[in-house]
Structure formats: structure tokens, C-alpha cells
Design a binder for these strands. Sequence first.
DNA 1: ATGACTGATACCTTTCAAGTATCAAAAAAT
DNA 2: ATTTTTTGATACTTGAAAGGTATCAGTCAT
Lengths: 302, 302
Amino acid sequence: MRHLQPHIRYFIAVAEELHFRRAGERLHVAQPVLSRAIRQLEEQLEVVLLQRSRRHVSLTAAGRVFLEECYLAREAMERAEQRAIKADKGEAGRLIVGYTDFAINGVLPSLLATFHRHLAEVSIDLVRCDSHEQLEAIEGGRLDVGFLTGPVSGAGLKQVTVHEAPYMVVLPSHHPLAELKSVSLKALSQEVFVLGNVHTWRHFVSQIKALCFEAGFIPRVVKEAPNSDSIFGLVAAQMGVTIYPDCDLNHNRRDIVLRPLAGTKAKLMTEMVWSSSSTNPVVARFVDIITQTEPVVEHRQN
Amino acid sequence: MRHLQPHIRYFIAVAEELHFRRAGERLHVAQPVLSRAIRQLEEQLEVVLLQRSRRHVSLTAAGRVFLEECYLAREAMERAEQRAIKADKGEAGRLIVGYTDFAINGVLPSLLATFHRHLAEVSIDLVRCDSHEQLEAIEGGRLDVGFLTGPVSGAGLKQVTVHEAPYMVVLPSHHPLAELKSVSLKALSQEVFVLGNVHTWRHFVSQIKALCFEAGFIPRVVKEAPNSDSIFGLVAAQMGVTIYPDCDLNHNRRDIVLRPLAGTKAKLMTEMVWSSSSTNPVVARFVDIITQTEPVVEHRQN
DNA sequence: ATGACTGATACCTTTCAAGTATCAAAAAAT
DNA sequence: ATTTTTTGATACTTGAAAGGTATCAGTCAT
């Protein structure tokens, strides 16, 4: 209401009251002000909006149409004000969220659903993006929040662990080690590995390699694959074995076998990361809602 | 654009240029004007919309949201102006159209479709209403245009005949007169009649009675029915015969027979009627389009 | 006829929006 | 490091336009 042009506000009042003096009282304005405002409006539009005899005021056909449209314009303006205020409090606007395959196949959907339930007026832009690219984008302000594979380092970044998945050994069905209930890292020292492409799976692959190194061997990688399906396919084709975080999706395949990885407490950490210097108020609301609603594993800060 | 509050216009320009001086040039306004306008806007909303360092201007999250909503408000305001101008020329707005059963079962649908093709921005309110009620409503300004059964009388009313239907005699299938190719009025003098209810079918019934009177007899009416289906049903039930205007719909029934009414040139006239003193500019456009596009039977004026 | 009511008009007052000049800070050029 | 340029903010002045008062001129009811 505040930011609608006075002429329009005056027209609405007169059109509703169909009476200049009463409209004036309603607006706390003298009657001649309205006579003049309506005349100017009509001159500018070159359209007669109100038919006034000395005794009676009525809307013309054009006036009726204009009134209806003025209502819509007024609503649009009020909505603009309300949404700006909400956006300032982080209750409206846009949030650009990055995610990895591990995140989108894991906890992310339910987290986003929770957030949407709380703040439906925020629209979320989802961007598929590798972990290290996400970190750069967050520092560069191109991404508001990232869901990525830890560990995370970087000044000015905050993080919360939203999920930690134990590792599983993935074997072809008829592999000798498939007999065991669980497989230790040591038992894999002579195996050949299928792993994800180093460029896009940088974080995950380096963790697997570090695990093997701790166990006293360097894994022999015979194949690199660009995505999860390829990795499982290559294992099924008996090209090698692999290590993969535990998640429901894996267990559906027939031609491969998963066994818990014994002898390590390492897990694949999925972290929610954001910049402490973010200018988007939605970020704080998002983080608050996620951490307060969902049972989060751990809370750390850089 | 003209009727949007200056503050909003200024904000849009600065938000688009992200530069106060350039925005000022675009608006033909000095730069300090914009500094002040934006500050006032922010004070009123209690929201920072633009982040300005001494060297760089950028939108805050709230500013982005507000800008998007301002675009919508601006469009709404522009639309209001355009629609008012169009309404004044009769190219937008509302038209209240009355119709009878004869009209809606006859030419009216195609006439309305033609009009809608020409002026889609006019919304038409259709009102089912008897002929004499329509005439009253048109004179009282409650109806813009009527499609009704003639003849029409009334000062200040204009009319165009949009359809004239020859009369048919409606007989039960096994009636003796059904043998004839056509049936004269005289042949019906000894028959009993099923006719429409006098109140709602006033015009039509009085015409039928007048026809009979001219032919030298007064029809014996044994049944009055409220609608067309009832009339046909009662004829099929051999309660009597009737006279009805020719239209495609009638010929679908099996249990009745229609024969042309011989010995008269009288026809059922469907008239488009409107007030010559109508204040709705759409009326003139409507009449123009109907009379110019459709092959109209006859043109008369009171 | 008369008085009450209502919108338009003329005229005056005030407000506030726009312009000018200038400042202060930051980036770019030297 | 210093100077120049760029750019938004501020202080002050001016003027147009918005608002108020008084009044007029029809219209309607009594």
C-alpha cells in the first residue's frame, strides 16, 4: 500500500466509496485533492474512469476494468514489500546448493524436504558438482551451501557432518573373499582395484588410497571409471574389486557382493559446508533448520 | 511505467545498472536523487536492498527478491493502464448477454465464438432469461445485449434479426396428419395443443396463438409445459400436437414427426437487442462484429 | 421555493522532490 | 608513493506539485 502511487490509491478509494467526500475522509485527505487526482489520472490515460453527475458517482466500463487491475497491481506491490522483508530475514529468496552423487543418493533429499516444509518460499537451485569444485564455488560466493565428501579445509568455511557411511568391500559374486563375513584391508593387498576417476572423485579416491597405505600397501588400480554404475559394472565383469561407502542402493545388484570392511574405523563423511562470510541470509536459516531438525552426527567448525 | 511510484522506478534502474550515475542518466535525473530515493526506500522497508562500497554496487539477497517482485508489480501497473485504454475502446471488459432457449440452441454459440475470436479480452457473462425479462433488463441497464424472440418494442432499443426459423408442426408418429408432406394451419383447427408455459414462453406462445387466430380458430391447449423437452415428450405421449420452430435438434427424435407448416409466411425471429443509450463501449464493438461477420437476415431499428 | 448535499474550481500554503556543489574514499595511473 | 579519476553520500537551495481552505454551482428532497 505504502509504495503504490497516490493517484492509484485515491482512485481505488473513490471507486469503492463512489463518493468523493467519504473517500477523502477514509484517506484523511480533503475532497478537492481527489477531484484533482482523478481528473489528472483520466487526462493521463485519456480515458474517463468515473461518471459523475452533480449528485451521483459511478464507474464507467473502463473504470471497472481499471479498478480490477489496480487491485492486482496493489497486491503485487504489497507482495514485493513483504517478500523483501522476508528475504532479509532469510525466509524467502533463492539458495544455490551443490551436491555430490553420495549426497543425492543419501541424506540430501530428506534434508531438502525438511527445509522446504519450514520455508516453502525459498526456491532451491541444485547444482551437481564435485567436492573440490564445490569448495571453490563456496569460497567464491557462487554456491551458498555444499553437500560434499570430507575432509574439508579452507579458511572461512563452516561445516556440519550430515552423514557418515562405513566402507564396504565390493567383490564379484564368485570371488574367494566373498566367502567371508567381513573383509579386512590387509586381505585386499594383492587384489587389483577398480576406482573412480581421480579428477572428479578426488576426495573419495584419495581416502581409499590413504586407507590402503595405512594398512601397508599401495593399491594397484587397473581401471578408472567415471561414475558409480561403471565401477559396479567393472567389478561385476571381474576386472577387480573396489571399496565403496555403504548405502541402500548398492544392495540391489545380483552380480556383486558387499562385505563390511574390517580393520578400520574410517568412514565416508558427507559434510554440509557453507561460508561464514555468506551474504545470503537464507544460509543461516537453512543451517539452523537442518541442524535442529535432523539428527546430525557431529558438529565441527574450522 | 507512468504510474509506478518513482522510488520503485528508481530502484529498478539502479538495480539493473548497478551504478548510480548511469542509472541517473538513463532516468534523466541527477545522481543524488537516486542515492536519496534508495535510502528512503530502504528506511521504509527496513531492509538493505543494495550493498554499496565506495566503488561497487551490488544487490543483496533481499534486493534481488525485491527487484523480481518489482518487475511483476510494474507489469501489473502497465497492464492496468493498457486494459483501461482498451476497455474504453470496447476491446476489453465484460459483456452481460441474455439468451433464450431458442437462441442458445440456434445461432448464439457461433456468434459468441466469432466475437471471442475478434476480442478475446472481453469476458462474456451469459444469463438465461426469458424474452420479456431480457427487454426489461436491457432498458434497466442490467443487461448489455439480449438474444430473444421477437417482436421487440420499446423506445431506445436497437435490434438486428440474427435468425428466422420457419415453423414446423410436431405430431406423434402415428398421427393421421403425419401422412402429409406439409400441414396447413387450417388442418390443425380441431387438434388439441401442447404449448409452452405462458409465463416463461410469453412471446412464442402468443405468436402461435395469433397464427391460429389468423387461420380462423382458437387453439385448444390441453397441456402447458415448462421446457422444450417436456413439450416433445407430451406430443410423443399423444397428449396433443404443437408448433415449433425448425432447428436441427428436433429431427433426432424417433417418436415424433415434423412437417412444415403450410399456409403462413410467419417465422420465429431471434433478435439481437441492445440499448441505444448503453454506456458500455463493448456493446458497439459486439454489434459491429456480429453484423459485419455473420450473414444477418435483416436490419431494423426502432 | 428553499436548504442540504456534492463535486468542481480558484487560490493559497507547504512539503518534498530534484538540482548544484562538494566531499570522501577507493581504485587506477603515473 | 603520489596524483588523478571515479563514484556514492551529504548539505544546501530551489521550484514544482501536492494538499488545504473557501466558495461556487448544480441537484435533489422537502
